[in-house]
Write a protein that binds this DNA or RNA. Structure first.
Lengths: 153, 153
DNA sequence: CTCATGTACGTGCATATGCACGTTCTTTGA
DNA sequence: TCAAAGAACGTGCATATGCACGTACATGAG
């Protein structure tokens, strides 16, 4: 078997080992473990850090909008928020439209996020350096494109 | 702000929106939903399909080895296997070394995997086409590199 | 042979994930 | 104004994920 044949088989669409879903999940699992370890001293889980980061960047948001920003099911977010609300890092408030739950970052939440930021930067830098900045940058673009395409389909 | 500055900020290591972990998880979530939908008529979940595919490719394996191949925590796999064993798609057998649980694909499991394969190919093709084959191929390489790097660290 | 060491595993706990279904509230068309 | 349509949400169910901890078994040094 030639080199090109081997490569084309490895990357054939129909090679189950090349399953986009399985490989994405593998990467998500192992990378999450690195981030969890790095964030461990902050008391925040990786997903919680992401929620706080999104609220910091986007400001208060209704639950559904926050879920959309996080590419997360609405009902999953409902439950993910409970530990954060329990710790007083966010509040869940009603609006004039009583159907809407507005998710609000508290001062404590903002402080916790800022305190966690250096730990996040450390592990993020390590991952980026591991791939090399240029390659990582393209990788991130591919992730965004994949998300956009899978969402629109 | 110039174009290059905007780009460098977007891909700055310290831009929380560029969090490798969060973006990997987002992509894994939305892509998983596509595969779940495609596999729905087969009665297999995406993770279950992956287990069957791995057993098909690698043959029977002890639990820990299978977990390693799947980049999955051993204890998670223990539980993920239960529905598969319940449906008779795999068996969990003892060895001479009584500590070892050998995971074995049954004939029924093999059949279920083969029946699911066309459904998998359909959604896989769609995802690949969405990115373009060349870009997808590089994306897959990046995923593999990320997994390898995060595992070794 | 025996005990210390190491290996393979399961379970309790906590969080993560999404679908189906039902509830409450708002908006809109007649 | 009022009923139908639609929007925002919560909960039950099932699976997914990994850590801490404990158990059973195998192996090797003495």
């Amino acid at each position: 078997m030639s080199q090109s044949e081997r490569k084309s088989e490895r990357h054939a669409t129909t090679n189950v080992a090349a399953c986009t879903c399985a490989n994405l999940r593998k990467a998500a699992r192992v990378v999450t473990q690195r981030y969890e370890a790095a964030l461990q001293p902050t008391g925040l889980k990786a997903t919680q850090f992401t929620v706080l980061a999104t609220l910091t960047k986007r400001g208060d948001l209704p639950l559904t909008h926050l879920a959309d920003a996080l590419v997360l099911d609405r009902t999953t977010l409902t439950r993910n928020l409970k530990p954060l609300a329990g710790q007083g890092l966010i509040t869940i408030e009603n609006e004039r439209d009583q159907r809407v739950r507005r998710i609000k970052l508290t001062a404590k939440g903002s402080k916790a996020f800022k305190a966690a930021l250096p730990h996040w930067e450390k592990v993020q830098s390590k991952i980026v350096a591991g791939l090399g900045h240029k390659r990582w940058s393209g990788f991130l673009d591919d992730l965004a494109a994949t998300i956009a395409e899978a969402r629109s389909t």
